[in-house]
Design a binder for these strands. Structure first.
Length: 548
RNA sequence: GCGGGUGUAGUUCAAUGGUAGAACGGAAGCCUUCCAAGCUUCAUGUGAGGGUUCGAUUCCCUUCACCCGCUCCA
């Protein structure tokens, strides 16, 4: 039951998005394209409002002289926009090239797919047969292999000592032929395919002639644009550490399984910020951004009971990270108690700047060291440029540490859409219950701020006055003018797209019922459906206060 | 990428081997003094390609997309 309700709600949301012009399938008239979506007229307004709210919060409305609550000190904020195609070495040095090129093997029997380097196993012999028994457990591999080997040789558990082990637990990558391999979920031997390459980065070529030398990648994240421009920003904009560089823009990942509407897509927009600070203050800054980013969603009206701030377990942390927290939302397509990630706030240490100086880094014990090839040279050398920061007051030179809040813009849009969607049971005058669909967007992100309606369209005085009001408001906000259908119908239309306010011009407005209410209008509020009379002269200020 | 399911109007759904319907929505008009009112008129569809057939939206094949489960998810 919960299952069908869960899907039903998501289906209604998807249907509304299509019907009212929030989200369309990409290239729909040609049958659509997997994992790609377009924003419609209302969708783009919503998305732009959300992006603008983020940009304002991060960059334009930041005051570098004021120390925000919870911040170790005051700080500066800047923005950039870097290119989508960057030097291919950026991705080798950053680790994405290796990370996003996975070798995968399929099991013909279990129909499962595994990362080639995730499968472990051991050569085990019994009778005349020697088999590579594999598994993908996180726990005790030896125990799991013993269990599966016993099963394979049809032995009872007490005869474990009859197994002859010919190797320690090793990676499947050490096994040249797979015909004597017992796949992790198979009963037969030799069911694994040859390893095949999966490339999560979109490839393209620079220049009209294609060759291996011309190969380039569409960025899988915007973050590297900030790291490689760190020096430029420091040199050009008089910023001092601590400061942040923000960027919004498209990224591309060739996901194996795009799923869940616009939640996981192959082309997506990110809102990322790299905050550079002194290593000694980095933990405090991490806490600050972690809490501040969570609050941003709440301030924009997302329901707090569906939003969580989840700290990663140590084992879950990326190899360079000292701490990471996710802002996650309980989407309708999530199982009970599960959430979808909107944003990750990561303490990245000096990993990124050091990588771009020295070369691709790997963890060795507790140290990050430059990964080397067979000859002891860096596998992927860095730029060799000095990306340290010199603090003139403290007379100190250091590699800044980085705090990175990285949000998915499209996921955030989807979360706000899902959160705003509401079906309200109301009883009309005839005592009949009907359903009112309302998108309860926060006024600041609502695609349309106000609807302007003449009560009747066949009364020229009403229409003329309504056009006046519209013209007055339009320079300051998105206004939707509508004169067709009964007034109630027009209200409901706007409810469904989340317009927070409706303004109706009636006979009082044009002075037909005396001077007292002349030049006043009805202001109708979306959520409560309450109406009050306000002076046209007060309207703009009143609305601006609500939508800013 | 595997398995299962689904593709009919903008949306939600009917129907059919022989001219594809409804409701809601949309447009136009009349009417209408504040919460999807009424009346009249109109527009719009079988995901794509191929096959079988006199004739295919229906049967078959391929493909594409969406949903569910696996897998994947820096």
């Amino acid at each position: 039951m919960a299952e069908s309700n869960k899907n039903e709600r998501m289906e209604k949301i998807v249907s509304l998005c299509k019907r009212r012009g929030f989200v369309f399938q990409s290239s729909e008239i040609y049958g659509g394209l997997n994992g790609l979506w377009d924003y419609g007229p209302l969708g783009i307004e919503l998305k732009r409002n959300i992006k603008n709210a983020w940009w304002a919060d991060m960059v334009t409305s930041h005051n570098e002289r004021i120390q925000p609550e919870g911040a170790p000190r005051s700080f500066q904020m800047t923005g950039i926009e870097s290119s989508i195609i960057m030097h291919p070495r950026v991705w080798k040095t950053s680790g994405h090239y290796d990370l996003f090129h996975d070798l995968m093997v399929d099991c013909r029997e279990s129909k499962r797919r595994y990362r080639y380097d995730h499968i472990k196993g051991a050569w085990v012999e019994h009778g005349e047969q020697k088999v590579f028994v594999s598994c993908i457990t996180d726990g005790d591999a030896k125990e799991e292999i013993t269990r599966r080997a016993l099963q394979h040789f049809k032995l009872k558990a007490k005869y474990a000592d009859q197994l002859t082990w010919h190797s320690e637990v090793v990676d499947l990558t050490t096994v040249p032929e797979t015909d004597q391999v017992l796949a992790p979920d198979a009963k037969e031997l030799g069911t694994l395919t040859e390893p095949r390459e999966f490339n999560l980065m979109f490839e393209t070529h620079i220049g009209a002639m294609q060759s291996d030398d011309s190969k380039a990648f569409l960025r899988p994240e915007t973050a590297q644009g900030m790291f490689v421009n760190f020096r430029n920003v420091v040199d050009s904009s008089r910023v001092k550490v601590p400061f942040g560089i923000a960027q919004q823009g498209k990224s591309f990942r060739n996901e194996i399984t795009p799923r869940n509407f616009t939640f996981r897509t192959r082309e997506f927009e990110q809102m990322e910020m790299e905050f550079f600070c002194h290593p000694s203050e980095s933990r405090e800054w991490y806490q600050f951004w972690r809490d501040r980013r969570f609050k941003w969603y709440v301030d924009l009206g997302i329901s707090e009971e569906r939003l969580i701030l989840r700290d990663h377990e140590e084992a879950e942390l990326a190899h360079y990270s000292v701490g990471t927290a996710d802002v996650e939302y309980a989407f309708p397509f999530c199982e009970e108690g599960e959430y979808g990630e909107l944003e990750g706030i990561a303490h990245r240490g000096d990993f990124d700047l050091r990588s771009h100086m020295e070369g691709k880094l790997v963890r060795e014990g507790n140290e990050l060291v430059v990964e080397t090839d067979g000859d002891g040279k860096p596998k992927y050398p860095g730029s060799g440029k000095d990306l340290t920061y010199h603090d003139e007051e403290a007379k100190e030179r250091f590699v800044p540490h980085v705090i990175e809040p990285a949000a998915g813009a499209d996921r955030t849009v989807l979360a706000f859409i899902c959160d705003a969607f509401d079906e309200e049971e109301i009883t009309n005058e005839k005592g009949k219950t009907e359903t009112r669909t309302v998108m309860r967007f926060h006024p600041r992100i609502a695609p349309v701020k106000v609807g302007v309606f003449p009560l009747l369209k066949n009364k020229p005085e009403l229409v003329a006055k309504a056009m006046e009001v519209r013209a007055m408001l339009q320079p300051y906000m998105t206004v939707f003018y509508d004169e067709t259908g009964a007034i109630g119908r027009r209200y409901r239309r706007q409810d469904e797209v989340g317009t927070p306010f409706g303004v109706t011009i009636d006979f009082d407005t044009i002075g037909e019922n005396g001077e007292e209410n002349k030049d006043t209008v009805t202001l109708r509020e979306r959520d409560s459906m309450e109406q009050r009379r306000v002076k046209i002269d007060d309207l703009l200020n009143l609305l601006l206060k609500e939508i800013m």
